[in-house]
Amino acid sequence: MPGRVVVVTSGKGGVGKTTTTANVSASLAGKGYKVIALDADIGLRNLDVVLGLENRIVYTLVDVIEGVCRLPQAMVRDKRVPNLFFLPAAQTRTKDAVSSEQMADLCKELQQDFDFVFVDSPAGIEAGFRNAAAGATEALVVTTPEVSAVRDADRIIGMLESLEVTPIRLVINRVRPDLVQRGDMLSVADVLDILAIDLVGVVPNDDSVVVSTNRGEPLTLGTQSLACKAFDNIGLRMTGEEVPFLDIEHCGQKGLVGTLRKMFGF
């Protein structure tokens, strides 16, 4: 049975597409699935840094498409998790170096060998996004609880629907419980109300994410934090497991209830 090709996209830049790709890929690989993370952000690659594999890149996705090398030669195997592979983007080229058909063919080829193919899409709605979504069988839309990001996510969901990439699931990243409680940030319910699609994960704003990104060590490879748990849960939900959502919006709550929540680990 061919694997699942998941495009991770958002419309708006800087909301956490690459972080989500890296962490969910690492999480699923850690659970025994054979996973490849593909960086489709040609010319502005970042996934290599977040995965900590930048020093091991020899060939890129563009080299594979242009026939400079064979597909396995360009794949970088993560030594920390045996089932995690990475296909880097070319930094010296631009988005028009590949076409949608070529990307779709590449995804089809990867589908034969992997359980999950995660495609890290570039920001925007132009050719780069369309190439990334070309071979996808499903999508993870990442947004933050900000009006601008949610509106862009809505736009991208509409485009994914017209490209017939379904199911489309939502990841709400960087939720700040203190701001939500004060009414200064959209709550998870607000975002779902606007976007009306299935929620697959809520990730709290967490310093550990910044640290892990800078170190090139995906959280799900070891660190224990709330964000790590959230990414892990996204992986589990994608495999069909029923995992209750973390009550992130109340985790900053003070008083007896808050203390009890902390004591019992939510």
Partner: peptide
Amino acid sequence: DHSIRSGQ
């Protein structure tokens, strides 16, 4: 019979 999303 669908929703009309941003940009549509």
